[in-house]
C-alpha cells in the first residue's frame, strides 16, 4: 500500500482528465445526489452521505446491448456488440460501493466470465471517498464494512481539513499514484485521517454488531427455510423492485430480444427477484409465488448464499434499500429479528 496526501482535489481531477479518463462522480440532480458522468470539476458534489444510485450502474449496466442481428430472405447476419476496449473511467464513490464491487467481481468473474462486465471493470478505476458522516439508514459496520474501508477500491481518499489522505488498495491505484507523483505530497500523520472519520463511526448504528454471524447460523438451519416467521417479517413488502435496482450487489438480469421486422438487438437488462414473474415457470408453477418467499430469497442471497459461495458479503450496508422502500421494509429490522432467533 502506498500512502500520500492530495492537497487539491482539482489537481487529481485535471491529472485524470489529462489521462483521458471519463469521470463519474457524485453530482446534484434536483433533491438527490446521484452518480453520473461529470464534465467538469464544478459538477462534483462533496456534501452527501450516499448517492441515490450505486457504482454498479457503470460496470453492470441497466441495459447492455449484447448483439445485433438483421436478416433478409437470403441470410441472417449477427454482429457481436462487445467492444475491444471500453472507455477508461474513474468512479468516485463511497467505500460501501467499492466493497460491493468486490462482491460483483465474484459473480461476474467467477464460474462464468462475463466479458461485458470484465471489460468495463478492467477499464475502471474505483476511487472511494471516506465518509465523514452517516445517516439513519447507513449500517456498513454491521456487515463488516468501514466508512474508511479500502476494500474493493483502487484508491481511497479521506477528506482532511486541507486536502485528502491518500491510500491505495490495488496495483492499479499504485500505478496511478506513481504516474502522477507531482500531484501527491508525502502522507501526513495517520491520526489526522482517523480523526476525519470519527463522526461517521459515531453516527453509524452499533446495535447490530456481530449480527451477520448469528444470521448465518439461523439461515444455515434448513428447518428455518419454511419458518412461519418469514411472512411476518415480509408482509408489508409490495414486491416492487426498487431495493434490488439501487443495491450495489444485486446482479440478476434477463436477456431480451428487441426487434423490428428485419433487424433487432439482443439486450441484457436488470431483473429483480422481487418480481412475481421472476421465477414463474413455463408450466405456470411458481416456486416463489408469495411475496414473503421472494423476500426470504433476497435476504438469504445477501446473508448466506454470497458467503457460502464466495465468502464475500452480499450486503455492504449502504442503506439504499431502506431509503427507497415505499413501505419502510427495513433490512436491518429483519437482521435484528433473525439474529434474535439465532440465539
Amino acid at each position: 500500500m502506498r500512502e500520500g496526501k492530495l492537497r487539491d482535489f482539482s489537481d487529481l481531477f485535471q491529472a485524470l482528465t489529462g489521462d483521458n479518463y471519463r469521470i463519474v462522480g457524485p453530482t446534484r440532480r434536483g433533491d438527490d445526489v446521484v452518480l453520473a458522468e461529470l464534465s467538469s470539476m464544478e459538477e462534483y458534489e462533496a456534501d452527501y452521505v450516499c448517492t441515490a444510485n450505486s457504482a454498479k450502474d457503470f460496470i453492470f449496466a441497466r441495459t447492455e446491448p449484447i448483439l445485433a442481428y438483421d436478416y433478409d430472405a437470403a441470410e441472417t447476419r449477427v454482429r457481436d456488440l462487445l467492444l475491444d476496449v471500453y472507455p477508461p473511467t474513474v468512479i468516485f464513490c463511497r467505500p460501501c460501493d467499492a466493497r460491493g464491487m468486490q462482491s460483483l467481481d465474484a459473480v461476474f468473474a467467477g464460474e462464468y466470465e462475463d466479458e461485458f462486465y470484465l471489460k468495463r471493470r478492467a477499464a475502471a478505476v474505483i476511487v472511494a471517498v471516506s465518509c465523514t458522516a452517516a445517516d439513519d439508514a447507513c449500517f456498513c459496520t454491521s456487515t463488516g464494512g468501514r466508512p474508511d474501508g479500502v476494500e474493493g477500491a483502487d484508491i481511497l481518499l479521506t477528506p482532511l481539513e486541507d486536502g485528502f489522505y491518500v491510500e491505495t488498495g490495488s496495483t492499479k491505484g499504485e500505478e496511478l499514484l506513481a504516474r502522477h507523483e507531482k500531484v501527491f505530497a508525502p502522507a501526513p500523520e495517520r491520526a489526522l485521517r482517523d480523526k476525519a472519520i470519527e463522526k461517521a463511526y459515531k453516527d453509524l448504528r452499533h446495535d447490530l454488531a456481530e449480527t451477520p454471524e448469528r444470521i448465518k447460523a439461523w439461515l444455515d438451519d434448513y428447518d428455518n427455510y419454511d419458518s412461519e416467521k418469514w411472512p411476518k417479517m415480509a408482509f408489508r413488502c409490495l414486491s416492487c423492485g426498487a431495493c434490488t435496482f439501487v443495491c450495489p450487489t444485486c446482479h440478476c438480469f434477463d436477456i431480451v430480444d428487441e426487434g423490428k421486422l428485419g433487424a433487432g438487438e439482443r439486450k441484457r437488462n436488470w431483473d429483480a427477484c422481487q418480481f412475481d414473474h421472476f421465477t414463474l415457470h413455463a408450466s405456470g408453477h411458481n416456486p416463489r409465488g408469495r411475496q414473503p418467499l421472494r423476500w426470504r430469497n433476497r435476504f438469504t442471497c445477501k446473508f448466506k448464499i454470497f458467503l457460502d459461495k464466495w465468502n464475500l458479503p452480499g450486503c455492504v450496508g449502504c442503506g439504499r434499500c431502506i431509503r427507497v422502500c415505499p413501505v419502510g421494509q427495513d433490512i436491518t429490522e429483519v437482521m435484528g429479528a433473525v439474529a434474535e432467533q439465532g440465539e
Binding site: N53, R62, L238, S239, C240, G241, A242, T244, F245, N269, W270, A272, F275, V324, P326, V327
Partner: peptide, 10 residues
C-alpha cells in the same frame, strides 16, 4: 427511469 416498477407496486 430505471424500470423498477415501484410506481406500479405502490
Amino acid at each position: 427511469c430505471i424500470r423498477c416498477h415501484a410506481c406500479r407496486a405502490a
